[in-house]
Design a protein around this nucleic acid. Structure first.
Lengths: 173, 173
DNA sequence: ATAATCCCAAGTGGTTAAGTAGGCATTGTC
DNA sequence: GACAATGCCTACTTAACCACTTGGGATTAT
């Protein structure tokens, strides 16, 4: 039930790009150093993100990577899905209907509705947080000084609200 | 981001035990057959569940397994935690404080709050569904006839409510 | 005594994770 | 035009893990 480093690193990289959304393209080397990730490994992940259309690259000297969309328009879920595959706790409730097989089990799989609920609650969180939210969160955390991490704001700290709001009113739109 | 078969099989097995909670101990062979799981593999999983105190076993002829508590008092989360380890999308937000290391990263890990939200939304779902809920769900599904799986009830089918209810008003009693 | 059952430890074959290594292609700068 | 800096690609590697299987016990009702 763990994410692999692909998802984690990829998200960190995208966050890094979002931080420099206004600047010139960011070379991978800089991202790798700032985020503490192997550069050549990161290269592979960026390849996937590029092919998926989440980032753009420019080659040659002074080249680098940049987000292909505005940070507000890229969610954590977008990144994770590219690097980890469809979000689903088990194969048989995968998001893309493709891998949708009928569970083959006689009874119709009692546990299935659990996995569907779990999947939905996961996607609700991941799709409600954008890269822009992350940047904001980091900025506001910085302002609060480098101490004071503990006893921090419980619910309702701007960004955190995005997630809560999604629950509550029953179904998804 | 997938569960392994341990969690899935283990939950199926526990569900099976919950279905026969009133009867004599259920031999593994029966569980394995009904749920379509390799018996010797299941043996290992039951070993973990027994050592964790979720099931009891009686040895010898006419022996078998039974739940150690009432089906209402065993949640899906309980089972998953035993077989898959603490519920957490990444190591550094693991439920047990043990593996709590300070991320070592300079900035304090911007992404961490995402993983915490994700973890919480996962545990909220998994801890809100008990084995008794599963049995009820299966029974009521059976009543509705063996056809009619499709176009089924959307939200609000008794058991499904258990999950919804958990959001909003805090945890379980 | 026997058959049914649980219990345990070890082995196995395949897959994946998490990188590394090496080379080629492109592009700005001098 | 040479060059250094970058992206792009493929193949390799090491270790771990998954999903079992095998082969033995130890216990207990009949």
């Amino acid at each position: 039930m763990k994410l692999s480093t692909k998802g984690r690193y990829g998200l960190l990289a995208c966050y890094d790009l979002a931080c420099h959304a206004e600047d010139a393209p960011v070379p991978l080397k800089a991202v790798a150093e700032r985020q503490g990730i192997s550069e050549s490994y990161l290269e592979q992940l960026m390849g996937s993100l590029r092919r998926a259309g989440l980032v753009r690259s420019s080659r040659g000297s002074q080249g680098g990577y940049a987000l292909a969309r505005r940070p507000e328009d890229v969610t954590v879920g977008d990144v994770i899905r590219v690097l980890e595959g469809p979000i689903a706790p088990v194969e048989c409730v995968s998001e893309d209907g493709a891998a949708f097989q009928h569970c083959a089990k006689t009874d119709g799989c009692v546990t299935r509705y659990i996995w569907e609920k779990l999947r939905d609650s996961m996607t609700r969180v991941l799709d409600s947080i954008s890269l822009a939210d992350l940047v904001l969160e980091a900025r506001s955390r910085e302002e609060r000084g480098s101490g004071a991490e503990d006893g921090g704001p419980g619910p309702g700290s701007g960004v955190a609200a995005a997630g809560e709001q999604a629950e509550g009113a029953g179904g998804r739109p």
